[in-house]
């Protein structure tokens, strides 16, 4: 099962991952993070491991994609 991990304190809440996700499994958190943004969060299931959120994310360490586990 593929999944993603969002490192919430490195996310600037730009929303590009949410926009690009073909299966809509990423959403905006209500929480405010260390940087002062509402970070993205994984809904918890449904990730296909397509990797697009990783490549569209401008921050080096905000999203990790596990394609096969």
């Amino acid at each position: 099962m593929a999944r993603i991990e969002v490192h919430k304190d490195h996310c600037k809440g730009c929303g590009l991952c949410i926009d690009i996700c073909p299966v809509n499994v990423i959403e905006t958190s209500k929480e405010i993070n260390n940087l002062g943004y509402h970070p993205a969060q994984y809904k918890g299931e449904g990730c296909t491991g397509c990797t697009l959120c990783f490549y569209t994310c401008p921050e080096p360490d905000a999203i990790v994609v596990y394609r096969k586990d």
Binding site: D9, K12, P58, E59, P60
Partner: peptide, 15 residues
């Protein structure tokens, strides 16, 4: 904040 870039949210540079 030494894990993050100085770029604005959604900036193409980071990508």
């Amino acid at each position: 904040y030494q894990q993050d870039t100085h770029y604005c949210p959604g900036c193409g540079h980071g990508i």
